[in-house]
Write a protein that binds this DNA or RNA. Sequence first.
DNA 1: TTTAGTGCAAACGGTTTGCACCGCT
DNA 2: AGCGGTGCAAACCGTTTGCACTAAA
Lengths: 143, 143
Amino acid sequence: MDIKKAMEILRENGYKNTSQRKIILDVICKQKRPYKANEIFNMVSEATSGINFSTVYRNLELFLNLGIINKISLNESFNYYELSTGKHRHHIICKLCGVVKEIDLCPFKDMEISELEKLGFEPKEHKFEIYGICSKCKNNMIK
Amino acid sequence: MDIKKAMEILRENGYKNTSQRKIILDVICKQKRPYKANEIFNMVSEATSGINFSTVYRNLELFLNLGIINKISLNESFNYYELSTGKHRHHIICKLCGVVKEIDLCPFKDMEISELEKLGFEPKEHKFEIYGICSKCKNNMIK
DNA sequence: TTTAGTGCAAACGGTTTGCACCGCT
DNA sequence: AGCGGTGCAAACCGTTTGCACTAAA
């Protein structure tokens, strides 16, 4: 997923190509880790002026529905957003500095699916997150 | 963990043994699945009158700090609470009716831990949740 | 020109907090 | 008696919404 593809999805679905959307998408496409809504708002505000928080939220919601981005809820009172990559992702979260990083690991196996289906439960999605101490914080603790 | 053990933990840590705490603990000890704060509040209110939401929240927070209960945050704007069992737990959540159920399955393996440690990340806890359709909702769909 | 999108301000909903009173210990 | 706990009401904070104006198609 890149900004061109995202704009195409918007157009195909009859949504307008506004300057605000372009800037929000630009910020999201450049991100190296999942961002909070207010981080996205701040970065968007650096690029333009007068954009409103509700515009950011409304568009995050729209991008979410169109599958352009994913929403991640962790053990916190706010959500994170990241560019959709097709395959599902999992994250590690530092308990000290709060940084969120994507990992390749997925522990969900066919065996477990059949285990659940025995219970009559049909799994659709899953979430896997690991909380711990990142290398940066570990180094700071030693110093 | 049962109500006696919980009261003991409170006493040992110098907290008072109030009637409100007894009722909240009683509700939590009887629960068959994780409850939302407002579910706990409603059940507590049935048992007594005049109890305040802030008392429930303050005590949930306290019980959490003392390890009596666990807090579970899912993809929703509120949290769930369940009695602490020593071993960590995972959950399945129905995407239709929202019911939360505990499962025994844990997909986190030693192999994965060492994988993470290579990155310099020290895992402490993890979260694993499966979203899908429960048997009850599946049956309702067929009818 | 039409209709979706935006900015603004106010509302929302779960949670937290300040304060005076209450009731364990 | 002293101080932790409670009820109350208001604040908090991330998010959502109603409305009139703006701008993309």
